[in-house]
Structure formats: C-alpha cells, structure tokens
Design a binder for these strands. Structure first.
Lengths: 220, 220
DNA sequence: CTTCACAATTGGTCAGACCAATTTTTCAAA
DNA sequence: TTTGAAAAATTGGTCTGACCAATTGTGAAG
C-alpha cells in the first residue's frame, strides 16, 4: 500500500502512526507480531526486523510469551553502539576522556542543585564502604565506580546518566590501573569526601572543580 | 557457543568484535548475511535482525545485490524515531534540552581553544548565508542548524559531536517554531555573531555564556 | 582489449514450522 | 460461589528453505 521502501521501514512508520493515532504511551502494549504482519500484509520476519530496530534503541521492550510494550526513552544503547564504532583510534580515546569529564562535571553541577537527602545518604554510605575497603587492604574498584555512578544519578537527568554509562564502561580498565598506584585510593577517598561536602552544601564551582581535578588525577 | 541472550544481540556483539579484531573501518565490507549466519551458527533471519538494528542507526549501509558496508556515523532516521516516541514524556524532554545545552556549551568552550582558520571561515560563511536568508524574507532554519553544527564540529571532539547530533535532530521542529516568531531570526543572527567573535578571540566564558543564553532564548 | 550475455553472489521478502514463556480459559474440588 | 490447578491459546524467539531483484563476476565472441 504505502511505498517502495524496504518493508521494515514501512512497518516502522506504521507503528509510529499506530502510536500517534491510538495515543499509545509508555507502558502500553503493541499488537502482537502476528497481528501486525497480518494487518500490514507483510511477513512476520519483516515485522520483527522493525521491532528489533526499535528494541535496540530501547524504545520498546519485549517479553517472551507476554507481548511488546512501549518503554521509556532509551539513549543508552544508542551512544554505546555509536561509541563502539568510533572508538578505534587513539584520538577517539582522548575524546572519550574529555567527554566523560564534561558530562560528569556538569552532572555534579546539577547534583549540587538537586540532591535529595536520600541521594546524599547513598553517597555517604558509599564513602564509608570505600573507607572499609581501604582499611581491609582491598583495591576499591567497585566502590569507586559506584561513587561516580551515584553522583551522576544525583543530577536527576536521566539522559545524561544514560550517556555517561557507556563512556565509563570503556575506561573501567583504566580506573583499576589508576587505583593500583600505591596511595592513590586514600587520595581518591579524600577527594571523594571533598566532592560530597561541596555537593551537600550546594557549592557548585567548588564541586565541579574538585571533580575535574579528581578525574584528571584518576584517569589515564 | 556464546550465551543465552537473544541471538540477534549475540550477532550484534560478534559483528562489533569482528570490526575491532579485523580492524574494519568506514567503507569496508562486512561478510554476507549467509556467511555470517554460517560462521556464527545462527539462522540468517537472526543475522538480519541484527543488521537491521545497525542499519537504522546508520552504522552500516546495505546495497541490494552488492553487500553490507560500514558507513560513517549518521543519525537522521534514528532521531526521527526517538522523537516520535519521546514527545509524550515531558521529563525526558526537559532532560534532552538540558543535556543539549551542556554538550553544546562545552563544545563551544573547546572551540575557543581549538578553532582553526578554516573553522572560522566556515562559520563566518554561514553567518553571511544567514543574513542573506533573512534579507530574502526566508526563515533560516537550515542555516541555523548549520551554525550550531559547525560550532560543535569546531570543538574537534568527534565523540561529543556524534552525541550532539541526535540530541538536536530531535528538536529541529522546535527550532523552526522558534525562528517563526517575528524578529527572532534577526536576534538569533546577532547572537550568532556575538558567539563567533568570542570564539574567534578565544574568550571562553563569554562564548559559553553567549551560547547558553542564546539556547535559552531559542529553545523555550 | 573490449563487449556483452550468462552464471553466481547477495540483500529483500515470504511462508511455515517448532520451541519456550506467559496469559487466558476451563472446570472440578472445596 | 469461590478457589486453584490443569489445559488451551497466545506470543515472542529461532530455524529452514524458498523465490525475487539487483549487483558483481566470468568467460566467450568480436
């Protein structure tokens, strides 16, 4: 009926129309694959190709035996995939570090404005775990990651959060190397405390500066 | 062999490995669908689901009868899709605006440090086109987009650039609405000039502030 | 060497079959 | 009537094999 594009694109568009016309929203269920292929007069495989494309963007969620549902906005996998196709050369690595620093610094700035009591509690809990890990002679790799993760979450900007995750995944190895330097975990812990205090007090510039310097010392 | 995820995800990962291991780059050809399904011991339909997901992200390009090729990173259709799914969720929209502002502001900061003569020439050329469009009584939608695009490119951080693209593609409709307000294009042009001068002179704070305010006025 | 027809390759689509997880229905026991 | 477990129907996940359409490769004729 529609055009001469690839079928899965037709299906993609049909689904969009379906969503707009029927006013479907987050959490609502889409017609089954078989029903869609029936309604649109295309093979089920074509419908699936379209749905898979939407799934990889995290725009829909599928449950085996259950059905297909519209989900919130993703964006994570998006950046992740793109990054994996970009990140081959050294230049890209530099870009990655720089980009992470930007994202995280601004996340901390937002955190200063938006942190709730619960956020702060979670972060302070993390700091305590960090201390214990050091006291136990361990390298607090996981705690370190979690600290930064909580901080970005506290920005209460979900998109920013989703962009941040893949950026850091790639430098996780580097984080471990960094923490392996003797004395570094103690220093990092001190810097973490500094950041927490600044965020808690809402002192944006201080928090951002502390974080930026912290990352400069941690990365690479 | 690999895991218990959905097969198409396995294929997705396999392709990524393939790209990294064999050092494939833009323009190179991927193995045929049949060969991939053979090598990975999965049905061709599963391979296709993975390829379609990559295609919708414009990470690959397929030519009927020709083959499948790795392409540069794009993001047109991708964002149209996301946009159509995102419109309902106010929170996500706020996050998007905020995130775009962060990315672009920091990109401009970098641009202040790294702009080349060529960059500046391109941007100034764009400003002239902008003027002409206004003089001709047109709404300079395309020129406006290009201005911001050039600015982010001038950051010489490719990753940042590629993150920025989808964020803005989404709000293109909003850009048009904004420019439709009478008098707005002239004001925007003035602000653009202000930003260019600051970048040219390497005055970071001034450039960042000018851009931030410009976006605040533009995006509403 | 060039040209042109034919075969092989490759992506695009379809149909139908099973499996596995989930949901819905059915119906007998309490 | 209510409850609850078994059975049936639904739904996503995967595979096989077929055919079409566009492109690429090959080889013989000129």
């Amino acid at each position: 009926m529609a055009g001469e594009n690839k079928m899965y694109v037709e299906v993609l568009e049909a689904i969009q129309h379906l969503i707009h016309n029927d006013g479907l929203k987050k959490g609502d269920r889409l017609p089954s694959e078989r029903e869609l292929s029936d309604r649109l007069n295309v093979a089920r495989s074509s419908v699936r190709e379209a749905l898979r494309a939407l799934e990889v963007l995290e725009l829909i969620e599928t449950r085996r035996g259950g059905g297909t549902y519209i989900s919130g906005v993703g964006g994570r996998r998006l950046v992740e995939l793109i990054a994996s196709f970009i990140l081959k050369d050294e230049d890209a690595r530099e870009d990655l570090k720089e980009t992470r620093k930007i994202i995280e610094a601004e996340a901390v700035r937002l955190a200063c404005r938006r942190s709730t009591k619960k956020d702060i509690e979670g972060i302070e809990e993390n700091v305590i775990k960090y201390e214990k890990a050091i006291a136990a002679g361990e390298v607090p790799v996981e705690e370190d990651y979690t600290f930064h993760h909580l901080m970005v979450k506290t920005s209460h900007n979900n998109l920013l959060h989703h962009i941040w995750i893949p950026l850091v995944e790639y430098s996780k190895a580097a984080i471990k190397d960094s923490l392996d330097r003797s004395g570094r975990p103690r220093q990092a812990l001190y810097e973490h405390r500094e950041i927490v205090e600044a965020v808690k007090a809402g002192r944006e510039e201080q928090a951002v500066n502390a974080l930026t310097q912290h990352l400069d010392r941690s990365m690479f």
